[in-house]
Amino acid sequence: MDPEAPREPGHSVSERLAAAIGSYAAEGGPSYQHVPSELVVQDFFDGIELNARALLRFIDTGKMPTAHELRPVTELAMARLANGAGLQEVIGSYQQVSADLWRRFVSESEPVDRDDVLDLMPKVTEYIFNVVTLIATEAAHRSADPRSEARDRDRAALDALLATGVAAGPFDVGRPCFVVAVFQLSGAPGAGSSVSALKSRVEAIVDVHLRLDLNGWVAVHWSSRSRQDAVADFRATLDRAHDETAVRCWAGIASSSTAAGVPDAYRTARGLAATAHALDRSEFLADLGNLTVEYLSAASGPDLPAVAELVAGVSAADPIFEQTLRIFLEENCNQLATARRMHVHRNSVTYRLGKVHALTGLNPLIFAQAASLHAALIARDLS
Rank of each mutant, 00 (worst) to 15 (best):
A52T: 10
M64N: 01
V117P: 01
W102L: 10
E138C: 11
P36C: 10
E108N: 13
I48W: 10
P72S: 09
A144P: 00
K63N: 10
I128Q: 12
R57C: 12
Y24P: 00
S31E: 12
V117R: 08
D115N: 06
H141P: 00
V40T: 09
E49R: 14
E27F: 03
V40I: 15
A52N: 05
D116M: 09
R103S: 12
P72D: 02
S12M: 07
L39I: 09
V41E: 13
Q96D: 02
I91V: 15
R53N: 06
N130Q: 11
D113S: 11
R80L: 08
A52D: 12
F105Q: 08
E38R: 04
P146Y: 06
R103N: 14
G29F: 06
D46E: 13
P9S: 05
M121N: 10
V73R: 00
D46L: 13
V35P: 05
Y94S: 10
Q33S: 13
E138T: 14
L101W: 09
I128F: 07
S14E: 09
A26F: 04
A52S: 11
A82Y: 04
R71P: 04
E27R: 15
R80G: 07
E138R: 15
G62A: 08
K63C: 12
Q96N: 05
R142P: 02
V40H: 03
L101M: 13
Q95D: 10
I21M: 15
T61D: 13
Y24D: 09
A144D: 04
L17A: 15
S93G: 03
W102M: 07
L87P: 05
L76S: 12
E15I: 07
H34E: 01
I59L: 15
H68P: 00
L134V: 06
P146Q: 12
V112S: 10
V90C: 09
S148H: 05
H11N: 01
S143Y: 09
N83F: 13
H141C: 03
V124D: 02
S14C: 00
I48H: 04
D119I: 00
V106L: 15
F45C: 03
S37C: 07
V90I: 15
A54S: 11
I91M: 06
F45D: 05
T61F: 08
E49W: 02
Q88K: 08
V117W: 01
L120H: 02
M121R: 14
D43Q: 06
R104I: 02
N130F: 06
L56H: 01
G84Y: 06
D116K: 09
T74N: 00
F45T: 04
Y32K: 06
L50M: 03
L70G: 04
E138G: 03
P122M: 11
P9M: 14
G22E: 09
H11S: 11
T61Y: 08
A19I: 03
K123I: 00
P146W: 08
R16T: 10
I59Y: 12
H11V: 01
W102D: 03
E49Q: 12
L118P: 10
F58C: 08
T137I: 06
Y32E: 07
Q42F: 12
P111E: 15
V40E: 12
N83A: 08
V106D: 04
I21T: 05
Y24W: 05
V13A: 06
W102F: 09
A140K: 13
L118E: 13
L134N: 01
P36Y: 01
T125K: 08
S14F: 02
